[in-house]
């Protein structure tokens, strides 16, 4: 496979409203220091969770597929935190570790699921792509590209029929726009005025196929046109931008009971899965450009610059988080495997 010539780094055509101007523009959205520190801890947790997960994958403790969330943290932190998960619901796709953690599931339960343990969030029967936690209103985890989009539409329809004031958000990747079900569901959601937010996490690659090789238009918001659904492209690297957009959009969807489409521009650091072959489909130059706008870096730079935290304090935070996650890994490793009789349980009632 040859590396397709493309402009490295966050492409201007796909970057929407001045994503490079992060140091000033997005900061207009007020986030107090307590919130920012909380977000920092969450982003560090998500990043380090995957680092330890990757290590255990390489150790053979995690089998099958492993889709790392590393690099996309500002998307989840901004969007999931803006939900009210007492009344709102999430339908996710296979890159679900970050989102299930943000919905409130303890890391040790996610690790236990990854290790195939009885204590896992899906009792060890789902694995990486199939995290479910109904009490956190987290309805999966879905291994099929585009598979959750119509389900989220149904969840939104149920909320509407039950006269609940919740909304449903659905995460999927840029590749999902190439499936028929995305377009069918956009039509249904608009036709029936369903309070669902379709969130396309555009990390620039549909597996190993870059945006310009799989999408007829460079801006996915343009491909979501034609259904009467408002669309918006946001900077997914900047937690101020994701937070601001989420709070405004979710309020609107809740009030107007109408769907919305968000394209969040971001980048995954690992391959599609961490088992991927060498990433010969993208350039080092491009990776470097995106790393320069790393979501964690943007946040820590700001916190240091504003003297909210020092580099040393941030490093200390990371050390604490890693120690806590290591304890979670250790505990999950100790958890028992499912009983053999579990094989045939939960198939039907």
């Amino acid at each position: 496979m040859s590396v397709v010539a493309r402009k490295p780094g966050p492409p201007e055509s796909a970057a929407g409203n001045a994503p490079h101007a992060t140091a000033t523009a997005a900061r207009n959205f007020p986030l107090d220091t307590a919130t920012l520190k909380h977000y920092l801890r969450q982003m560090v947790t998500l990043r380090e969770f995957e680092h330890l997960g990757e290590r255990e994958f390489k150790n053979g403790l995690i089998r099958g597929y492993y889709h790392s969330y590393a690099g996309q943290e500002a998307v989840g932190v901004g969007l999931v935190n803006a939900l009210d998960l007492h009344r709102d619901y999430i339908v996710d796709h296979y890159r679900d570790h970050g989102h299930v953690l943000l919905s409130g599931v303890e890391p040790k339960l996610v690790y236990a699921e990854l290790f195939g343990r009885r204590t896992g969030v899906s009792k060890g029967k789902g694995g990486s792509m199939h995290m479910y936690s109904p009490e956190h209103h987290f309805l999966g985890g879905d291994g099929i590209v585009g598979g959750g989009i119509s389900i989220a539409t149904g969840v939104g329809l149920a909320l509407k029929q039950q006269k609940q004031d919740g909304i449903c958000v659905c995460f999927f990747g840029d590749g999902a726009l190439d499936t028929g079900t995305f377009h069918e569901s956009m039509n249904l959601a608009s036709l029936w005025q369903i309070p669902v937010v379709f969130i396309c996490v555009n990390n620039m690659y549909s597996m190993g196929t870059s945006l310009e090789r799989h999408s007829s238009l460079p801006r996915l918001v343009d491909r979501a046109q034609g259904y009467g659904v408002p669309t918006e492209q946001i900077d997914g690297q900047d937690v101020w931008a994701t937070t601001a957009a989420a709070e405004r959009i979710f309020r609107q969807v809740r009030e107007q009971q109408r769907p919305y489409f968000i394209e969040a521009l971001t980048y995954r650091y690992q391959g599609h899965g961490i088992h991927d072959k060498p990433l010969n489909y993208r350039s080092l130059e491009e990776e470097t450009a995106w790393h320069a706008r790393d979501p964690l870096k943007l946040l820590t730079d700001y916190l240091v610059q504003e003297k909210v935290l020092s580099h040393k304090q941030i490093e200390q935070l990371r050390t604490e988080v890693v120690a806590s996650l290591e304890a979670d890994v250790a505990e999950a490793k100790q958890a028992p495997e499912p009983d053999p009789e579990e094989l045939l349980q939960d198939v039907t009632l």
Binding site: S150, I151, T153, V155, L157, A158, C168, S185, L188
Partner: peptide, 28 residues
Amino acid sequence: KDRVIDTPISEESFVGVGVGMAMMGQRP
């Protein structure tokens, strides 16, 4: 129309809508 919902010719998606509604406690 809220109990008898005519769908467009979108089988994959309206079956999925049924799955989502059922997960939420409706009886589609």
